[in-house]
Design a binder for these strands. Structure first.
Length: 259
DNA sequence: ATGGTCGTGGGACGA
């Protein structure tokens, strides 16, 4: 089973490129972030017409996440638990019904800039809630994964120029510490289970020729529970997507599981 | 050295 994660940066602008990529990459499940659309305005029939079940959790203008799945989805839950007052659409999870059930969580972790400030406080609080959900997910002892745009650069080798990120919310010590606390609960960073190679990125800013200069960062991640990590066959990034017409500033990352 | 690019929605803000 192939499961992909892709921050599409707006469904309206990205629908053609997303359809092209889905048709050639053929993921069984695609976890989307930054749909920037309400549930009503999401063009679900575009994806239903090519065989996907569609579950969205959107809001007007910003954020928004969605799950596309060729296999049936059950027990869909929206919103990360832990703060009923949080109105930002950044989390959706569901069970994919294949030969064996797989719980998939699709997340768009807050950017947190500028730091320090209220946006960074929100990011850290959100990461605390993520850690709590991650713990509960481990206790089910079922294969499960949490994937998406974490807005976290885990290590210096995950940035082309780590020095320019030292005061950025994506790379501050506190951010990295919380990310590693979640990993250390027992999760596997799927890409790092496949390769230790530096210089693998999932995001290049639109500005200042970042793509041309390969000034990228690795911020989109797949975290796997032990039962899911046991099924891991491969994890790759579809870098060539960034070169195309009207690209997102992120590229897809995917895992192949023995399921 | 400086400012630089997108997306949404139809202005200002988020990234």
């Amino acid at each position: 089973m192939k499961i992909a994660s892709f921050n599409i940066n707006g469904i309206k602008a990205r629908a053609p490129a997303l359809l092209d990529w889905l048709k050639e990459a053929e993921p069984d499940v695609a976890l989307l972030q930054e749909i920037k659309s309400t549930d009503e305005n999401f063009p679900r029939s575009l994806f239903e017409d090519i065989g996907y079940n569609v579950e969205t959790h959107g809001q007007k203008g910003f954020n928004g996440v969605a799950i596309l799945s060729k296999l049936p989805l059950e027990d869909v839950r929206r919103q990360l638990p832990g703060d009923p007052a949080d109105e930002q659409a950044r989390w959706i999870e569901a069970t994919v019904i294949g030969k064996k059930a797989l719980r998939v969580c699709c997340l768009y972790l807050p950017n947190g800039n500028p730091a320090p400030g209220p946006k960074y406080d929100y990011k850290l609080a959100w990461m605390d809630r993520l850690k709590a959900r991650a713990k509960a997910l481990l206790q089910t002892e079922e294969p499960a994964l949490m994937a998406g745009d974490y807005n976290v650069i885990p290590q210096p080798e995950d940035a082309a120029n780590p020095q320019i990120w030292t005061k950025d919310a994506l790379f501050l010590p506190q951010t990295r510490k919380k990310f590693h606390e979640i990993l250390n609960l027992g999760y596997t960073d799927a890409l790092r289970a496949i390769t230790q190679e530096p210089g693998i990125y999932t995001f290049w800013d639109y500005q200042a020729g970042a793509w041309k200069k390969n000034n990228g960062i690795r911020i989109d991640h797949f975290l796997l529970t032990p039962q899911c990590a046991d099924l891991l066959l491969d994890c790759q990034i579809d870098k060539e997507v960034r070169e195309r017409e009207k690209p997102s500033d992120h590229v897809p990352i995917w895992v192949e599981l023995d399921l």
